[in-house]
């Protein structure tokens, strides 16, 4: 048995497996709602590890296949970029 309270699902936003399972038990079965209430997938890694765990938990709870569950949109940028660098690049191109 995993210790839900000590298992971190999302390292960026510090969300435990227990918090995730509690939300699912409350009836939140939409990936996007869970993301917005917990900030899972909203941190610097942009869901690279946690998304799969959430999808697996949702799959177990709803009986849907992981591939059938609506997942988060990949939003730009792909990796974090400093605002200063973007600004300098933009000015060079002006």
């Amino acid at each position: 048995m995993t210790n839900e309270e000590n298992t971190i699902v999302c390292r960026c936003s510090d969300v435990t497996l227990k918090e995730l399972r509690d939300l699912i038990a409350e009836g939140y079965t939409d990936y996007n709602e869970i993301k917005r209430l917990t900030r899972i997938g909203m941190g610097p890694c942009q869901g690279k590890t946690c998304t799969q765990i959430v999808l697996r938990e949702l799959s177990m709870a709803t009986g849907k296949k992981v591939s059938e569950i609506e997942n988060q949109k990949n939003r730009p940028p792909v990796v974090g970029v400093k605002l200063k660098l973007i600004s300098e690049e933009a000015q060079n191109n002006d």
């Binding site: 909203m42 730009p76 940028p77 400093k82 605002l83 600004s87």
Partner: peptide
């Protein structure tokens, strides 16, 4: 100083 911060997502 906010120039030093990394953008992680836009929408």
């Amino acid at each position: 100083p906010l120039g030093n911060l990394r953008v992680i997502r836009q929408w």
